[in-house]
Amino acid sequence: MSATSQLSFQSIFDQYQPMVAQMCLGFVSGDQDVASDLTQEVFINTWNAMEKFEGRSSYKTWIYRITINTCLQYHRKKKRDTHVSIGSLESDVADSNNTTDEERSSELYRAINQLGKVDRLIIMMVLDELEYEEIAEVMGISESNLRVKIHRIKKRLKKLMHYE
């Protein structure tokens, strides 16, 4: 890999590492160790794909796509390796009364973890305040379809968090 590519990779890493780490953290329901491993895996995948980047999208969109693929790959592998009951996760959602911001955040991550893998990734991009147009591009769906999905995801989260 050329010095220019290395410099470019360092710049990409510096700019997007916090975003990738936050998205991975949401995907694994706040498990810092697994999120750190996933973040590292995303940037290994990014490094390996640097020469294939064609510039058809922004680096941000490209990195999101790599992050989504890495998280989905992790999910598939984990699913093969272990079978966790989602029912047991539902009992973990705490009563929303008298909770601190940290508890609410933790409750939100637990609820997000109960979503399907694609919904989980979509809501993490929404929480990361990515524009709908960019999320739609990353997911490969129309913006109107995305809006419907987001509405349904939010409704499901409210139900999971006992706000509805």
Rank of each mutant, 00 (worst) to 15 (best):
R76S: 07
G140V: 07
S57K: 01
V126Y: 10
S36H: 10
L38C: 12
L115C: 11
V148S: 02
E54K: 06
M124Q: 03
N69M: 06
E134H: 07
K79C: 09
Y64K: 09
G55R: 10
I135A: 10
R76V: 04
V84M: 10
S29G: 10
E90S: 02
S96F: 15
T82K: 08
W47D: 15
V118M: 11
W47G: 15
E137M: 07
G116Y: 03
T61M: 03
M125I: 00
Y64M: 12
S105M: 11
E143T: 12
S91G: 11
V126K: 08
D31T: 05
E137H: 07
D128A: 10
V138L: 05
K78Y: 08
Y74P: 06
E102F: 11
Q40L: 09
S105P: 00
D92N: 13
V138S: 05
R65D: 01
A111K: 04
V126Q: 05
V28L: 13
G55P: 10
S91Q: 12
A136S: 06
H75D: 09
S58P: 12
D95Q: 02
R80M: 12
V118C: 06
L72G: 00
K149W: 11
E107T: 14
V28S: 08
R80G: 14
L72Q: 04
L127N: 12
K52M: 08
S91W: 15
A49D: 13
I68H: 06
Q114A: 09
K79W: 01
E107D: 12
R110S: 01
T67K: 08
S91V: 11
I86Y: 15
E131K: 14
E102H: 04
D37I: 05
F53P: 11
T82A: 14
V126E: 00
L72P: 00
